[in-house]
Design a protein around this nucleic acid. Structure first.
Length: 712
RNA sequence: GGAUCCAUAGCUCAGUUGGUUAGAGCGUUCGCUUGACGUGCGAAAGGUCAGAGGUUCGAAUCCUCUUGGAUCCACCA
């Protein structure tokens, strides 16, 4: 054996061997109790970043359960990541001086498809290099034909059950990216703004009402002014009409208790087409909706003299014109308020009225809430339970239409004659109820999360015959806490809805891996780290161990080079313990002997120091097992590290050196036993080096460590 | 506005149901080392456990408040 451990000579070879022998497949333990995890499918639009290395938690659970004899499945896949991917691709196009408008839908789709296919092998190689024991024979992609079929079916089922409706409502629309978003995809930021106090004259008689607004450019879309019914200042004016400047229209003064008397003047302009609250208020009062901003972000022809201006420019222009009319009372320029931004391009989100497919969430959420409250689904760390319940209890309907090409096209057709919608499971309907054969498919695609919400069962329904039966519900869903609401919550809702059963029993959530300075890694900051770069330098085992060691599971951590180095040193320590043991077995007086294996019966012949290490080993077995079972991986890691380095190597090995020189068989038998146990316990965390060292010791079985039995 | 998390050695972090002189890695200081490993070994220095109050025989650990930092949700013109 070399004096220093060289992971490069070991890792690739061992992984290949495991994979070729089929050890990653559940068929290895066909009669065991099923244990399953579906890998959160990484986005297929880019290579993995360092945070993905946290999948190691799943690999630990998988390897542990495999060794415990479970019929263990860890199923890999990739997510087409609709909008995210199209965004990345469009950036690429931009660099080439092109844009999505240069291509028709099919061509664009094909180009992105090819782009994604180029990325997938890179991603898969990265996962292999990290040692993840994924069952590659079962890998799935969200755009596989059979997966798409299931997504269509779910859509159709929602439609048949009345949980799906198409409605023209305000949606969060990014005029820059040209698509709508769900509420979760809007981020809010504080911005300096102005609060404009503008006057609307009474249609008859003298006088006016002053309203306060941050968005005067929407005033041409106003269809009312609202006041609080308790507000004495406006009591006389309720029911009267105001002349809306720049237009021929007269708008009523309405009363609504949602109006805050304290804010501004107590009177609010109501723009149903461009503000969520106004939209709701308008429904209550049967007000019409006038859209003045288009989907291109520009004022449309309803905006009269302001047509063609971008909303922001129109704001200034409107105020200028209002000033000319003497209708600006004052402007508060030190007004700070929050505005919604597109989470991706950071441009302001424009609430716009658009026909979309919405899923009624209340009924779906209520069964999810029940499952969680009844502890059918458990959360680790527990604190996340409260967050998800809060979300589910206040859920709003889910807009699942996206105006992008990359994704699963919505299987719905509108009749061009009677305007009816027909939903199918994929195929184009022959004709409408009205007899018309002129049908046009919805041009929108599904929100990516709509398909990924079905991942826990879709992947199993489209694999080997018995998979769904064996592995659903999944044992564990492990992912980062940042997609708890986006993904985990929706998987629970859709999973229960579609299958009648929870999608998984336990939700295990790891923390974020930040850069060495504690900043969130992101492409725009340029501080992302390629996991392979780190694996090349320190070895996969060290990287894996560093991610579990020293930070309480579930907490955020920063990438730490000193820690990586320390863990690499640990692998070298392991290597040298192994080397030392190998050397003993090749000593002349041990070489030819067929040394027996440690058993409890030996205890009475053992020295105190032998007994001490045996006892410590037994304790380690218990502690490692229980800490993995309770998802306290950092405890396991610390215990293993402490035991192997500071008890086994520093103390016991030193204690018995003399005895080994004198040919003391018991010492070597105990040493070998403790070493075998150590390698087993450490294997889920550091699979490569433990497997390699396992192969260097004389032992009872010929089987590889990966499929050896977990000690009791 | 609602919720959650964090504040422990110079740095990065452990310390689960409250219990002996509060731990690790890195760093620092001193020494050792030539057949397991210098990616090593032995030892040492270093902490009013953010602050205040409370519960308790006993609190880093539980409760309240304050300060400072992070995050999530909702979103008032």
């Amino acid at each position: 054996m070399d004096k220093v451990y060289d992971h490069k000579k070991v890792e690739e070879r061992i992984y290949k061997d495991w994979e070729e022998k089929g050890y990653f497949s559940p068929e290895i333990n066909p009669n065991g109790k099923p244990y399953s995890i579906i890998l959160p499918p990484p986005n297929a639009n880019a290579p993995l970043h360092f945070g993905h290395a946290m999948y190691v938690i799943e690999d630990i659970l998988i390897r542990y359960h495999r060794m415990k004899g479970c019929k263990t499945l860890w199923l890999p896949g990739a997510d087409h990541a609709g909008f995210e991917t199209q965004f990345v691709f469009e950036k690429k196009l931009q660099e080439e001086g092109k844009s999505r408008f240069d291509y028709d839908r099919e061509t664009l789709y094909k180009m992105i498809w090819d782009f994604v296919q180029g990325n997938r092998p890179i991603m898969e190689d990265q996962l292999r290099r990290l040692g993840f024991s994924l069952d590659w024979t079962r890998k799935k992609f969200t755009l596989d034909e059979d997966i798409k079929k299931i997504v269509y079916e779910t859509f159709k089922k929602l439609y048949n059950d009345g949980f799906l409706y198409r409605d023209k409502r305000l949606v969060n629309y990014c005029t820059h990216d040209g698509t709508s978003f769900s509420d979760l995809e809007v981020i809010y930021k504080e911005k300096d703004a102005s609060l404009y106090f503008i006057k609307y004259p009474l249609a008859r008689g003298k006088g006016f009402i002053t309203v306060a607004t941050t968005r005067p450019e929407t005033m041409l879309g106003d269809t009312a002014v609202a006041v609080n019914p308790k507000d004495k200042r406006y009591k006389e004016l309720i029911g009267k009409f105001l002349s809306l400047p720049f237009t021929e229209r007269q708008i009523p003064v309405v009363e609504d208790s949602a109006v805050d008397m304290e804010f501004g003047t107590g009177a609010v302009k109501i723009t149903p087409a461009h503000d969520f609250n106004d939209f709701e208020l308008a429904k209550r009062h049967n007000l019409q909706m006038v859209q003045v901003i288009g989907f291109d972000g520009k004022m449309n022809k309803k905006a009269g003299m302001f047509v063609g201006m971008y909303a922001k420019a129109a704001r200034k222009a409107v105020i200028e014109e209002m000033k000319k009319k003497g209708l600006v009372e004052k402007i508060n320029e030190n007004y700070v308020h929050r505005i919604g931004l597109c989470y991706k391009c950071k441009n302001p989100i424009e609430p716009l009225p658009l026909e979309q497919w919405f899923v009624k969430m209340r009924p779906l959420a209520s069964s999810a809430i029940k499952a969680i409250k009844d502890n059918k689904i458990k959360f680790y760390p527990q604190r996340h339970k409260k967050t998800i319940l809060q979300f589910l209890e206040n859920i709003k309907d889910w807009n699942i239409s996206r105006q992008i090409a990359w994704g699963i096209r919505i299987p719905a057709w509108s009749c061009q004659d009677c305007k009816n919608w027909i939903v199918t499971k994929e195929e184009k309907p022959k004709q409408c109820k009205c007899g018309s054969g002129i049908l046009k498919q919805d041009t929108d695609t599904f929100d990516t999360w709509f398909s990924s919400s079905q991942w826990p069962f879709a992947t199993l329904m489209t694999n080997k015959k018995e998979d769904l039966k064996s592995f659903y519900p999944n044992s564990v869903m492990e992912t980062m806490y940042d997609i708890l609401l986006f993904w985990v919550a929706r998987m629970i809702m859709v999973g229960i809805y579609k299958t009648g059963n929870i999608p998984f029993r336990e939700v295990v959530l790891h923390g974020m891996v930040k850069d060495p300075l504690g900043k969130k890694m992101s492409k725009s900051k340029g501080n992302v780290v390629d996991p392979l770069e780190i694996v090349d330098k320190y070895g996969a085992d060290a990287v894996r161990f560093a991610l579990v060691y020293g930070t309480a599971f579930g907490n955020d951590q920063s990438l730490s080079f000193p820690k990586l180095q320390a863990m690499r040193n640990f692998t070298n320590k392991l290597w040298n313990i192994g080397r030392f043991i190998e050397m003993q077995f090749s000593l002349e007086y041990f070489k030819e002997k067929n040394l027996s294996f440690y058993s409890k019966e030996m205890d009475k012949n053992l020295l105190k120091e032998d007994q001490a290490i045996i006892n410590a080993t037994n304790q380690l077995i218990k502690k490692t097992t229980s800490s993995i079972d309770s998802y306290r991986f950092h405890d396991s890691a610390a215990q293993l590290y402490e035991f192997i380095w500071h008890k086994l190597a520093d103390i016991y090995v030193e204690q018995i050196k003399e005895r080994l020189k004198n040919g003391d068989e018991n010492a070597l038998i105990v040493l070998r036993h403790v070493w075998i146990m150590s390698l087993k316990l450490l294997h889920p965390f550091m699979p490569f080096i433990t497997e390699e060292l396992w192969n260097k010791i004389p032992r009872i079985t010929k089987t590889e460590l990966i499929i050896s039995k977990w000690p009791k």
